[in-house]
Amino acid sequence: MGFLDSLMNSLRLPKKEAMFRLNRKGITHTIGYLFILLALLFLPDMVATIVHMETNLTEISRGRYVVQFLVFYPLLIIFIILVGISLLAAASLLLRRVLSRKLIYQQLWKLSAYAVTLPLILSVVLKYMEVPDRYSALLFLIIFGFFMYKMIIVYPKVPAKA
């Protein structure tokens, strides 16, 4: 039930109550949520790749290919998403500094991880609608930036130094 709860709250972002519920979840839960979300989003691609595998492969090389694909493809996706979320959280850290709010990187990392849910789902849908990648990426960044701005301004300002 934890994944569905996180998914529902992620889709309700940038609402304050959803944001605070998600921020209470641990980092291991957040990483597990990302893994399940990405597995579900990229499952059609994985199945299509295996189904449309080259027919000139021998049975041994075909089996090896499937095993390597099922092991390394998810690991590559997870690595890319963890690095990507870390970069997005770093950009959010700059936004936090500009808005002078009380937030630390760990909070921004978690918020970024949940804030990418809707843009990721939308990007996958746009991919199947054959929308060019640059438009999909631009829409992803706009939605993510809007969500992070709305979530960051909820937190209190840093007190002015006297």
Rank of each mutant, 00 (worst) to 15 (best):
F3E: 03
F3V: 05
N9P: 00
R12T: 10
R12S: 14
P14I: 09
M19L: 12
F20W: 12
L22D: 01
T28W: 11
T28M: 12
H29L: 08
T30M: 10
I31Q: 07
Y33L: 02
I36D: 04
L37C: 08
A39N: 06
L41K: 01
L41P: 01
L43E: 02
T49I: 09
T55K: 13
N56D: 15
L57M: 12
T58L: 10
R62G: 00
G63T: 08
R64Q: 14
V66Q: 04
V66Y: 01
Y73R: 14
L75H: 03
V83I: 15
L88A: 10
A90H: 07
S92Y: 10
L93P: 00
L95T: 09
L99G: 05
I104P: 02
Q107T: 14
L108F: 08
L111K: 04
S112I: 02
A115E: 01
V116K: 04
T117W: 02
S123F: 11
V124N: 04
V125N: 02
L126Q: 15
L126R: 07
K127G: 10
Y128D: 11
M129E: 13
R134E: 14
Y135G: 03
S136L: 00
A137W: 12
F140V: 06
I143P: 07
F144Y: 12
F146M: 06
F147C: 05
M148L: 13
K150L: 05
I152V: 09
V154P: 00
Y155A: 08
K157I: 02
P159E: 12
A160C: 01
K161A: 09
